Amino acid sequence: MKHLQRGTFYGQTNETILLDGITLTDTVYTHSKVDWHYHENAYFTFILEGNVIEGNKKEVYNCNPGSLLFHNWQEPHYNIKPDGFTRGFHLEIEKHWFDTIALSDDNLQGSINIAKPEIKFLMYKVFRAAKIEGSAVDFSTQTLLIEILSKLSAHRDSLLYKNPKWVQIIDEILHDQIGDTISLDYLSKIAGIHPVHLSRDFSKYFHCTLSEYMRKLKVEKALSLLSLQKQSLTEIAYECGFSDQSHFTRCFKEVNGLNPSAHLKLLLMK
């Protein structure tokens, strides 16, 4: 089985930034299929553009723009790239980095498909910092990575302790119906809990209010649509459920730190 060293990924590398224990790689995928292989270090794959299918011993992930995967070191997997342009941003972590900051990776074993929007927004920040700061990005990356891993570890812990069933039901509905008009009464009926109970306990499991979480999911979808470069900002705004482009721009900047046009400009930087 092929063993890939630090900073090595299948495809054409646009940029590699080597930091202390961390490597950032911007790669265009050029292989239609990559057989089973593993990397010497743990790493995140963040799909910026296009699509890729990634499989491991337990699961197969159909990744589109905005998909975020974590692989622990030496975790075997394979890739299939459908026709079209696909680009990924990788954040690779050497083993000694975890020891340096006294952070354990014990509950981050195997491969993880990360759906939490707040973790994805942090990865967008890492990508933006890399494009803006270049090789001076070390401090930004270190602090953002610690926050990413802390949130990911907390999420894995919550799964171990079995959240109530309604939490997963609500999360699936909100992800599946982004852009639709969804009421508290509608959610409570499907989840089988009282509206007051849902409203009161939502932040306990999602760490924000229901309306804030819905805005995050809308912005996350908008980020994915922006990468396709096929729709106007107005069209994206309406597809994601915003009342108008002005509302879309305001929420997008509030959640993601940049307005849509500025984000698209950074995305086009190679």
Rank of each mutant, 00 (worst) to 15 (best):
M1Y: 07
K2S: 13
H3R: 14
R6C: 11
R6D: 15
T13F: 07
E15R: 00
G21E: 06
T25Q: 12
V28T: 15
H31T: 02
K33A: 11
K33F: 11
D35P: 00
W36Q: 13
E40Q: 11
F46N: 08
I53W: 00
N56P: 04
N56E: 06
K57M: 13
V60G: 00
N62I: 09
P65A: 12
L69M: 09
F70C: 01
H77L: 04
Y78L: 10
I80A: 06
K81V: 14
K81S: 07
D83E: 08
T86S: 12
F89Y: 01
H90N: 10
E92F: 07
H96C: 01
W97Q: 02
F98W: 14
A102R: 15
L103P: 02
L103R: 09
D106T: 06
D106W: 05
N107H: 08
Q109K: 10
G110A: 08
S111Q: 03
K120F: 07
M123Y: 03
R128Q: 10
A130E: 02
K131T: 02
K131Y: 01
K131C: 00
E133C: 14
S135K: 15
S135M: 07
S135Y: 11
S135P: 00
V137W: 00
V137P: 02
S140I: 04
L145C: 08
L145G: 02
L145W: 06
L145R: 02
I146S: 00
E147M: 11
L149K: 03
K151E: 05
K151F: 05
L152Q: 11
L152R: 00
A154C: 05
W166R: 01
V167P: 03
Q168M: 10
I173L: 04
I173R: 00
D176S: 14
T181F: 15
S183I: 09
Y186W: 13
Y186K: 09
S188K: 03
G192E: 06
H194A: 07
H194G: 13
P195K: 06
V196Y: 15
H197W: 11
L198A: 09
L198K: 04
S203C: 07
F206K: 01
F206D: 01
F206G: 01
S211C: 04
E212P: 13
K221S: 06
S224D: 08
L228M: 08
S232H: 10
T234A: 13
I236R: 05
S246I: 06
F248R: 10
F248H: 09
C251A: 14
F252S: 01
E254A: 13
G257R: 02
G257F: 04
L258E: 15
L258S: 12
N259S: 11
P260R: 08
S261A: 13
K265Q: 15
M269W: 13
